[in-house]
């Protein structure tokens, strides 16, 4: 249950960071804004790690598969490409399309990692997509009516 609440809070944080990053991007440019974010983020986590007194040792690092280090680079690619694409498609589709990609990849990755395709995840995923679609349509109608009024 704790993890379920945490994962929902993760969604809150995603929206917060999108709003704040968009605001900073408007002021100084998206890429400069992203740079600042990483400088701030790196400084904070560095302080936290130093306070906790944990250290990276080379032996452990060497035992980690190389791809595991690419997440940080992917994060930057996601921010950069989102900034190109999001203005080009209606905002209400962004969450939906992103989610379709996420859930399909998520099911495939869970299958690769646990060697198990879960019918529940597929059925549940389709329901989540339908729910988002339904609400997107209501949002779209509201926007259209709002513009006409």
């Amino acid at each position: 249950m704790l993890y379920i609440v945490l994962a929902i809070i993760g969604g809150f944080l995603t929206i917060l960071s999108m709003v704040v990053n968009a605001g900073l991007g408007k002021e100084i440019g998206v890429f400069r804004g992203t740079f600042i974010n990483y400088v701030v983020g790196l400084s904070l986590i560095l302080i936290m790690v130093l306070m906790l007194g944990s250290f990276l040792d080379i032996k452990t690092l060497a035992s980690i598969p190389f791809y595991a280090f690419l997440g940080g680079a992917l994060g930057v690619i996601i921010v950069a490409s989102s900034n190109v694409i999001i203005p080009k498609i209606p905002a209400i589709y962004t969450v939906l399309l992103n989610f379709i990609g996420q859930i399909v990849a998520g099911i495939i990755i869970d299958y690769i990692r646990f060697d198990f395709i879960s019918k529940g995840k597929i059925i549940g995923g389709i329901l989540v997509i339908l729910g988002i679609l339904y609400n997107s349509m209501i949002d779209k109608k509201q926007l259209r009516d709002g513009n006409n009024a």
Partner: peptide
């Protein structure tokens, strides 16, 4: 948060709950 949830809930559930939080 994502890292903690990923190890405990798996990829698809973490991401789905995240989307729910986003919509909320």
């Amino acid at each position: 948060v994502n890292n903690i949830c990923f190890s405990n809930l798996g990829a698809s559930l973490t991401l789905s709950l995240g989307v729910f939080g986003q919509l909320l």
